[in-house]
Amino acid sequence: MTTGQRIKLLRQRAGMTRTVLAGLVGKSPDWVKSVETGRIQPPRLTTLAQIARVLQVPVQSLITAEEQIVLSTSTTHPALPAVREALNQWPISRDEPPTSLEHIAARIDVAWRVRHASPDHRTVIGRLLPDLIRDTQLAIRAYQGSDRNAAHAQLADVLGLTQMFLAYQNAADLLWRVVDRAMLAAQESGDPIALAQAAWFAIEVHRDAGDWDTAQSINQQVITALGPHLPDADTDLLAMYGALHAAAAFTAARSGRSGPAWRAWDEADRVVRNLPTGYYQRVTSFSRPVMIAHAVTLEVELHKGDRAVRMATTEQANAIPSRPRRARHLIEVARGHHLGHQHEATIGLLNRAYHTAPETIRFNTYARQIAYDLLTGPPALRRQAADLAVKVGLAG
C-alpha cells in the first residue's frame, strides 16, 4: 500500500472524515484527498508526523519501505551551512561603510545570469549568497529614504535566489524564514515588481506544501494589487503579472481543477504574446518558450500524460535559455511518459535533464521517485535505471 492508501485506511478505521483530518493538521480536504489518491507526492516527514499523531499511530506505519528510501535520501548541498550561517546573522554594526547599491545590483545581476547559465547552479549561487545576504542587510541599515527602499528590494531579490538554492533540501525552517523575510522586505521597498516576485516565491512554497488555498489567496491579492500599475507598466512588471497567472494555473492544476487552470494559463499566454520577442524574465523564467512548458506541466498535474507528451518537442525544449528551467521541463515531459508507462522514453528524458543541469535533477523529488520506480521496471532497462539512480543520488 502507498502512503496515501495507508492514511485513508487508518483515517477510516479511526472513523474520521477527510474534513476532520484536514482541520486537525491544518490542510484542506482536497489536499487530504489528493494525498490519499496519489495525485501528489507523499507529504514531508513533519506533516506525516502530524497526521500520525492525529490518527494515533506510529509515523512508520504511514510510510512504505520504498517511499522511506526516497524520503531518507534527500539531498543536501555542501554550501547549505554557509548559507544558513549568513541567514542567521543580523548585522547591526555601522562601523564599516556599506557597499554601494550599484555594486550590489551588478552582483545580483551576475548571480541571476550564472544561475540560468550553469549546469550546477546551486554550487555557483551557493558561493555568492552569503556575501550578498550580508551586504544587502547592511545596506538597509546604512541607507535612508529612497536608497533604503531600493536596498529592501535588493534584499527581496537576493532572498528569492536563496529560496531557489534551498528548494527541495532538508531546510524547511530556513525556507519559510526566507519566504517571510522576502515578503517583508518587498513590502518595505514599495516596489511593485519586488512585491510580485516575493509573492511568486511564496506561492511556490505554499503550493509545494499542499496549502493550495493560501497559495491562490496570495496569488489573487497580488494580481489585484498590480492592477492600478498596469496602464503604465514596463515590460518587467507586465511579465510578473503574466507569471502570477501562470502560477495560478499551476496551483489549480495541482489541486485537480482543470477549468480554472486553463483559464489562468490563457490569461498568462495573452500577456506573453505582448512581450518583446526574446524577452525572458530572470526570476520566474516567464517567456514565450516557457508557456508551452507550463502547458505540459498542467497536463501532467492533471494526469493527462499522453496530452503532455504530444505537446512537447525537442525544438521547444531547446528554446528555453535557462539550463535549470530546461532541465525541469525535461523532467516534466518524463513524468508524462512515466504516466503512460513508456519506460525507455522516460529514462532518455531524465538522462537529458541530467546532462542539461545535474543539480536540477538531483534535487527534484519527482525525478528521484521516477528513478526509484524504474529500478523495478522492465529487466532490459534495469541497468540504465541503475545508472540513473546513481545520477540522481539514490545510490552511491
Score class of each variant (00 low, 15 high):
Ala106Ser: 11
Tyr366Pro: 07
Val309Phe: 07
Ala345Val: 11
Arg127His: 14
Ser285Asn: 11
Arg148Leu: 06
Thr75Lys: 11
Ser146Arg: 10
Gln68Ala: 15
Arg18Glu: 01
Thr277His: 05
Pro98Tyr: 03
Arg270His: 13
Leu161Asp: 11
Pro379Glu: 09
Gln5Tyr: 08
Gly256Phe: 02
Leu302Val: 04
His343Glu: 15
Arg362Asp: 03
Leu238Ile: 08
Ala151Asp: 06
Asp269Cys: 07
Ala239Val: 03
Glu85Asn: 09
Thr75Trp: 14
Phe250Tyr: 13
Val20Pro: 02
Ala246Met: 12
Asp269Phe: 09
Val179Phe: 04
Arg122Asn: 04
Asp373Gln: 06
Ile292Ala: 10
Leu349Asp: 08
Ile223Trp: 00
Arg107Met: 13
Met240His: 03
Ala185Cys: 01
Arg113Asn: 07
Gly336Ile: 02
His341Trp: 10
Asp30Cys: 03
Met183Phe: 09
Ala105Glu: 14
His77Tyr: 03
Ala79Gly: 11
Arg181Ile: 14
Ile104Leu: 13
Arg18Cys: 02
Asp180Val: 10
Gly259Ser: 13
Arg326Met: 10
Pro228Asp: 04
His303Met: 13
Val57Gln: 01
Leu161Tyr: 09
Thr284Phe: 01
Leu184Gln: 12
Glu96Gly: 10
Ala252Phe: 07
Ile140Val: 15
Glu188Ile: 04
Ala172Thr: 14
Ala186Val: 10
Val300Cys: 13
Leu10Lys: 00
Pro42Phe: 00
Gly38Ile: 00
Trp265Leu: 15
Leu21Lys: 00
Pro119Asp: 10
Pro98Val: 15
Ser287Gly: 09
Ala202Ser: 07
Tyr241Phe: 14
Val300Phe: 05
Gln41Pro: 06
Asp120Gly: 12
Asp213Ala: 11
Arg6Cys: 00
Asn318Met: 13
Ile193Phe: 09
Ala395Leu: 15
Gln169Leu: 04
Ser72Cys: 09
Arg115Gln: 06
Gln68Cys: 08
Glu315Trp: 07
Ala345Gln: 15
Gly305Ile: 11
Leu138Tyr: 13
Tyr366Val: 15
Gln144Ile: 10
Arg11Leu: 00
Lys27Thr: 01
Ile40Gly: 01
His355Tyr: 12
Asp131Arg: 15
Asp387Pro: 07
Gly336Val: 03
